[in-house]
Nucleic acid binder design. Structure first.
Length: 311
DNA sequence: ACTGATGATTGCTT
DNA sequence: AAGCAATCATCAGT
């Protein structure tokens, strides 16, 4: 009768609500879904709160270096995605719940006109669930994609490299050209350079690797640059007060006598630590020289994916 | 949009 | 393990 039916409905309703939040705990352990869930969990998008946002904000506020800034930016974006993901998820759960209730009411009314078996109800509810699970799946999918894009954009240094600051290039070039006969800095020298330039040792290694090969490939052009730096080094070594400290302007070369500094030219790199005092250069933070914002990775609409923007 | 410069990665050699 | 050579992907000036 009616009371019986009503209680059945209620029971189903409860089950519904419970099972929504654990779609993957249901029977079909959809491998795809599990993959998505695992990834979201691994990225910290799903799962328990982890004070991500505030930590990122704190890191951003605390100054620090390029890498860390980017990292914190990345985490901030991730937190954003996470939040949207959760609100969306909640929205879906709510909608599912409401819809189920609605259908229940409908069925209940129908039950006055014709007998409705619990099986039928079950079927209906299942259909609804499947629909909403599909939506959830989609949400998870696009969240995953958004995270992946974010990762590749922020964490893969190669995809988003920045040129070194002018001072850093200056320091590296000075070392390179004053050690042209043997442009292979030792581990300690690399560390020193890394410290001076505010980059990592492996970046120094990369730089010298690139420099050596590119110098070799185009000695003609490099020579001009070389003469510039050797002249600078000499000036610095002798601390010549007369001639102006040379115009540091990198592309100002051209005149400069043909000192043709080949790989052997510069005798011994004894004038190593010198110079670098000469020019003013951009004394401020090096990061204001480079571009500021990446593709607007903010604001997320309904679709989490829009979070990372096009490209 | 195109192009040269440049930092990073990959695969190979020594 | 370090370096070289080729290549990728982005930067930055035009």
């Amino acid at each position: 009768m009616k009371p019986a039916l009503f209680s059945v409905l209620c029971e189903i309703k409860e089950k519904t609500v419970l099972s929504i939040r654990g779609a993957q705990e249901e029977e079909p352990p959809d491998p795809q879904l599990m993959r998505l869930d695992n990834m979201l969990l691994a990225e910290g998008v799903a799962g328990p709160e982890k004070g991500g946002g505030s930590a990122a904000a704190a890191a951003a506020a605390a100054g620090v270096h390029d890498n860390q800034i980017e990292h914190s930016e990345y985490r901030a974006k991730l937190a954003q995605i996470r939040q949207i993901y959760h609100t969306e998820l909640e929205k879906y759960e709510q909608a599912c719940h409401e819809f189920t209730t609605h259908v229940m009411n409908l069925l209940r009314e129908q039950s006055r006109a014709r007998p409705i078996t619990p099986k039928e109800i079950d079927r209906m509810v299942n259909i609804i669930h499947r629909k909403f699970s599909a939506i959830q799946m989609q949400l998870k999918q696009s969240t995953c994609e958004a995270v992946m894009i974010l990762r590749s954009r922020f964490l893969d240094a190669r995809r988003k490299r920045r040129n070194f600051s002018k001072q850093a290039t200056e320091v590296l070039n000075e070392y390179f050209y004053s050690h042209l006969s043997n442009p292979y800095p030792s581990e300690e020298a690399k560390e020193e350079l890394a410290r001076k330039c505010n980059i990592t040792v492996s970046q120094v290694s990369n730089w010298f690797g690139n420099k050596r090969i590119r110098y070799k490939k185009n000695i003609g052009k490099a020579q001009e640059e070389a003469s510039l730096y050797t002249a600078k080094a000499q000036a610095a070594a002798q601390s010549m007060p007369s001639g102006d400290p040379t115009s540091p302007s990198e592309q100002g070369y051209g005149h400069m006598s043909q000192t043709t500094p080949t790989m052997i030219q510069v005798s011994q790199g004894q004038m190593m630590s010198p110079s670098r005092h000469s020019d003013v250069m951009i004394s401020g933070l090096q990061m204001n020289g480079v571009h500021g914002e990446y593709p607007p990775v903010s604001m997320v609409g309904n679709n989490v994916q829009s979070q990372v923007g096009p490209e």
